[in-house]
Structure formats: C-alpha cells, structure tokens
C-alpha cells in the first residue's frame, strides 16, 4: 500500500477584491511542484477560510489580498486559526501589503509576506523549507 505524505495547501482570497491573477499563478506553481492545492475562489470570509483549512487538514494556508483590508481581516483569520487549534498549520501571505504593515502582520503569526514581483520559485521554495513538521 502506498504510504506517501502529500503537501496540502489552501490558497485563499479574503477580502472583496477580485485580483486573482497572482493567487492562481501561485496555485499553479505549487501544483506543478507536486502539491495538492485547494483553492476556494474569491471573497472568502475569515470563518470560511479557517473552517476550510480545518476540514481539508492542510499543512499550509496562503492568503492573497490586494484590497487593503488586511489590517482588519488578517487578525481575524489568525485569531480563528488559534481558536480552532490549527497549531500545526503554517500561514503566509501575498498581495499589496505596505512594507510598514509587515511587522504587525508577522506578529500575528504570519510567517512571511510576499510583495508584488516575487518570483514564484521563491514562494515554492519557501513552502518546501517551512513545511510544518507532522508525523
């Protein structure tokens, strides 16, 4: 019988904006790197995102936002991650997030924030290197 761990990753778009070009390119690159990518489409509430991560038992959540609402939505998402006990899930983010907001976002527990112009290979590599340990 096969005993193989696959990396499962949720690419989620909180906020009302519809700029999914980046999220989809990243999703595709991660898939091509051999991961199972769950994509839930646009405009997901923090509740939907975290509940999806729970049901899908993903290793990683990647958030993409370009609407400027990250300061309201990210804290809520991280609060729910904590609340639902998803302690073995790594969260990273990308989109338009001003440099000066980055420390605040990282303090919430978001491991990394990728700005515009990040090569996809860098994100793929980051995911491989920061995969949460699970036995």
């Amino acid at each position: 019988m096969q005993s193989e761990r696959k990396i499962r990753i949720l690419i989620a778009k909180p906020g009302l904006d519809s700029h999914d070009r980046g999220a989809k390119i990243v999703a595709r690159a991660l898939r091509d790197a051999g991961m199972e990518v769950i994509y839930t489409g646009l405009r997901q509430t923090p509740e939907q995102i975290v509940e999806t991560a729970l049901q899908e038992d993903v290793d990683i959540i990647g958030l993409s936002i370009l609407s400027g609402a990250h300061k309201v939505l990210f804290p809520r998402i991280m609060e729910l991650v904590e609340q639902k006990g998803l302690t073995d899930v790594m969260v990273f983010a990308g989109g338009i997030i001003p440099e000066e907001d980055v420390p605040e976002m990282k303090k919430l527990g978001i491991k990394e924030i990728f700005g515009p112009g990040t090569p996809t290979e860098k994100i793929v590599q980051f995911v491989f290197e920061n995969l949460p340990e699970r036995t």
Partner: peptide
C-alpha cells in the same frame, strides 16, 4: 507532477461554516 488542483468546493463554499456539513477535497 503528482500535484493536484482541488477546486470543487467553491460551489459549496458558503456551506463550509455550517457545522452540519463537512466537505473534503
């Protein structure tokens, strides 16, 4: 590649927070 893109749940996503529903891709 061994990878997969799992996108079926988008059509059911508003049900994902309903505690009586469990969706797995």
């Amino acid at each position: 590649t061994g990878g997969a893109f799992l996108g079926d749940r988008i059509r059911m996503q508003e049900l994902s927070t309903d505690q009586g529903v469990f969706i797995r891709s």
